[in-house]
């Protein structure tokens, strides 16, 4: 799949932003006044910045409001609704904390549920696709949720929670990578089933339908992005998980350590997200003899 920078920025930043909002909604920590202002500015900056980035990959962003209508069937529609509802609820919750010094507990809890819902629905947009076997696994939402809540805990200064969640996310990441490398062969979809010609003999793409490229090849068969996948996996593992976990274990926990760990972690997550798209094989590539 084509690793569109807008989608990588969106899933990385909004994951962190909604993760931080989740903890703030729980009152971990309870902050008021200027402290609350900075926490919510950071959370909204990440979440809203991510959402804005995601509209850049739309062909017609001016029609984006229509995406709130199909929640009955579409995970993308559900994600849009959860994201906006969560931001509205947290907007009110933040007004209480920043300007009135009031913590409206129920509103915060509701916001936290919606924040988790946003991250879950984002993950389900990818998880639902049978056409991309690497994504089509329950480990995908586990990975998205543990990363979001773990990164959010780092930003919220919740050391113990961050440690536990990042360990869980790291484990999910390793399982996801190992499982993902076998996903396409195990999916049962091959050029033989794609053409229905497998009963005659071994099928091979002899000549593609077009001499140049096309939308399908650019969007779904993005082999260039896989060139450095092993090195990027190392970057993702070290920056996304190992370094932040070691910092939490060894260094005395404070806002500076937490912020530094969060920045390093975010870079690792971005590398992991690049691979999430670049390494994902869409079954349509089989028709072209590619993966």
């Amino acid at each position: 799949m084509h690793p569109a920078p807008s989608v990588i920025v969106f899933t990385t930043l909004s994951g962190l932003g909604f993760g931080l909002l989740f903890w703030l909604g729980l009152g971990l920590p309870v902050v008021t006044g200027w402290a609350a202002f900075f926490y919510f500015a950071l959370a909204f900056g990440c979440a809203v910045g991510g959402l804005l980035a995601s509209t850049f990959h739309l062909g017609h962003p001016e029609r984006a409001w229509r995406a709130f209508t199909q929640w009955r069937s579409s995970w993308l529609s559900r994600e849009g609704i959860c994201a906006v509802a969560s931001l509205v609820v947290f907007g009110l919750y933040a007004i209480g904390l920043v300007f009135m010094g009031q913590q409206w507990v129920v509103l915060g809890l509701l916001g936290s549920v919606l924040a988790i819902g946003t991250v879950f629905t984002t993950a389900m947009i990818y998880t639902q696709l049978k056409t991309v076997p690497r994504w089509n696994t329950p480990v995908t939402p586990v990975l998205f949720l543990t990363l979001s809540l773990g990164g959010g805990a780092l930003l919220a200064g919740q050391g113990v929670a961050a440690l536990v969640l990042l360990l869980a996310a790291g484990a999910a990441q390793v399982v996801w990578w190992m499982q993902g490398d076998k996903a396409l062969p195990q999916s049962g979809t091959t050029l033989a089933t794609a053409t229905g010609l497998g009963s005659i003999g071994k099928v091979r793409s002899f000549e593609p339908p077009h001499t140049g490229t096309n939308y399908l090849l650019k969007e779904f068969v993005h082999v260039v992005g896989r060139k450095h996948s092993q090195k990027l996996r190392l970057v993702a593992a070290v920056a996304g998980y190992i370094l932040p976990i070691l910092m939490l274990l060894i260094l005395p926990f404070g806002w500076f350590v937490a912020a530094l760990a969060a920045v390093i972690h975010a870079l690792g997550v971005a590398a992991s997200r690049w691979l999430f798209f670049a390494e994902a094989e869409h079954v349509v590539g089989l028709y072209y003899g590619k993966r």
Partner: peptide, 26 residues
Amino acid sequence: DSCIGCGLCAWACPYGAREMDGEEKV
């Protein structure tokens, strides 16, 4: 007229039957 050009339908199609138009972005 309602298509926002997000491309998700093309992702969901296993056959490569949908293509985003490079000019109209639908």
